[in-house]
Amino acid sequence: MIWALALAAGAIVGAGVYLSLSRHLLRVVVGVSLIGAAANLVLLAMARATGPEPPVIRAGEVELAAGLDPLPQALVLTAIVIGFSLTCFSLVLVLAIAQRTRDTDGDALRAAEPHPDRDGKPPVEGDA
């Protein structure tokens, strides 16, 4: 079980890194949220995934003998909620960029960091 989770997390991180290195902005955003998904999976794996036992303390016992550690699940839920809002925001951001500039190429995004002039000096700017 733990091996399956580890392999899945590794594969997802790989996919996420690959996508986020792309020049296409949408892929970058999807890549970053994939890395977030992998982080959630790792967090879940830290619950010592042993089997399908529910995290319930049986009657007459005082501590959790079998079953998953419930805390990572709470953490994952929080992380999912936060990650979801972040993904929403970044998607809207990319959509807005695509509409303003008619371009989704990351290399063409030089509005905040203009290229140096031909003489190698920074361009005159900052009149905005």
């Binding site: 809207v92 509409q99 303003r100 500039t101 008619r102 371009d103 063409a108 030089r110």
Partner: peptide, 28 residues
């Protein structure tokens, strides 16, 4: 976010060929 898309659709209807006369690309 869906509203953004609707606006784009309206704009695309108004401009026959998107990309030809869109806002200028931000070039260095």
């Amino acid at each position: 976010a869906m509203g953004l898309d609707e606006k784009a659709a309206v704009a695309a209807e108004a401009v026959p060929a998107p990309g030809e006369s869109g806002p200028e690309r931000v070039e260095p």
